[in-house]
């Protein structure tokens, strides 16, 4: 009887606070005053809590930029930490507005899971780490190696594909988490550890002698990581997409967090003027205001600043720009024109 009572209470509570019709995500976010951002429960350099409980990292900062563009305040973000299994469900059930959680853009996720991928904020790829003392210079020399591999991931399938394509054999050492892999690799229970190269770099940074280990040059898979929104809300999709592009365009045009205000007042060229809202009405077309890009850039800096602060060469993660350099420097980071 009590059981029914509590169900009834729950139902009544649910109905009594029900409000009007379903609104678009942008209106929801504005009305709520906070951006609900789905992030990783903990991935070095990308999303983690610092000592004061503040979410930090590359993905967390991207959330701040979007919040600054939409709400005018980069701290109005509610972070929803999600595991690999729960992230899409949390998005589709509207618990979250956007996923910034190192999510690989794949055909099936885009088409069959009915998600909308905004673009790529970080080009990753699977790599191998090995002790320098083993004298291996290329992944092609890994025939017969024992490999530590996280089970149930796409990296496991990529590994099998790569070794089969190159007619080599390997012995898998199945493990569950990055931390476990780290311990097994250091204890020499496997010759090689394979996962995304950003993860390898982050892991190597924690070794006592990082210099004794090398990440092999081969990249055996494509892992384009980027933000994801729900299928079918084109306005919100545009807002997130062009906020991210604004960060990339800012790097191309030399706009940084420090000089953005100055550039907005005295734009050196029409491109900067349009990006920062000194000219035209691009922001209004998005349903925001003309300063949206200016606020996004001022929040955490342009793409290069966010990259360098969280995962760049001067951080413990120590990743080079590589594919993630601006197209001007030979990378793949490229923003369509703001006009």
């Amino acid at each position: 009887m009590l059981k029914r009572a509590s169900f009834a209470a729950a139902a009544i509570a649910a109905v009594s606070i029900a409000s009007g019709a379903q609104a678009a995500t942008l209106d929801d976010v504005k009305a709520r005053g906070t951006l609900h951002c789905i992030v990783n429960t903990g991935l070095p350099g990308f999303s983690y809590t610092d000592a004061s409980g503040r979410w930090s990292g590359f993905d967390a900062d991207m959330c701040r930029s979007v919040a600054a563009a939409v709400l005018g305040d980069s701290e109005k973000v509610k972070y929803i930490p999600a595991t690999g299994k729960t992230r899409f469900t949390l998005l589709n059930s509207k618990e979250g507005d956007v996923i910034f959680r190192n999510t690989t853009w794949t055909f099936v996720r885009d088409v069959d899971v009915k998600l909308t991928f905004i673009g790529t904020t970080y080009y990753d790829g699977q790599g191998f780490i090995i002790r320098k003392s083993k004298g291996v210079k290329s992944a092609k020399e890994l025939d017969g190696a024992t490999v530590c591999i996280q089970t149930g991931t796409t990296t496991e399938l990529n590994l099998a594909d790569y070794f089969r394509a190159n007619n080599m054999k390997y012995e898998p050492v199945p493990i569950e988490s990055n931390e476990e892999a780290r311990k097994n690799y250091l204890a020499d229970r496997c010759d090689v550890y394979t996962t995304d190269r950003s993860g390898l770099a982050a892991t190597r940074a924690t070794f006592d002698k990082p210099g004794d280990h090398t990440i092999l040059p081969e990249v055996v898979s494509k892992e384009p990581l980027g933000p994801v929104v729900r299928h079918g809300d084109n306005q919100w999709e545009d807002v997130v997409r062009w906020t991210v592009f604004a960060l990339m365009a800012a790097e191309e045009l030399g706009v940084t967090a420090a000089n953005a205000d100055e550039m907005a007042k005295n734009p050196p060229n029409p491109n900067v003027a349009r990006l920062l809202g000194a000219e035209g009405a691009l922001g209004e077309m998005l349903g925001l205001d003309k300063d949206f890009a200016l606020r996004a850039i001022k929040a955490q800096g342009n793409y290069a600043e966010i990259f360098n602060k969280n995962i760049g060469p001067d951080t413990p993660i120590g990743l080079e720009r590589g594919l993630n350099a601006s197209y001007k420097d030979g990378g793949l980071i490229y923003s369509p024109p703001f006009r």
């Binding site: 930090s56 949390l90 780290r182």
Partner: peptide
């Protein structure tokens, strides 16, 4: 509670471990 996106004592531990300054103290 981690499945609903709340960090309890264990979840806080995991997200803290991802801090590159402290990584490896599991």
């Amino acid at each position: 509670v981690i499945v609903i996106g709340r960090l309890d004592i264990l979840g806080i531990g995991n997200s803290s471990l991802a801090d590159a300054k402290w990584q490896g103290l599991s």
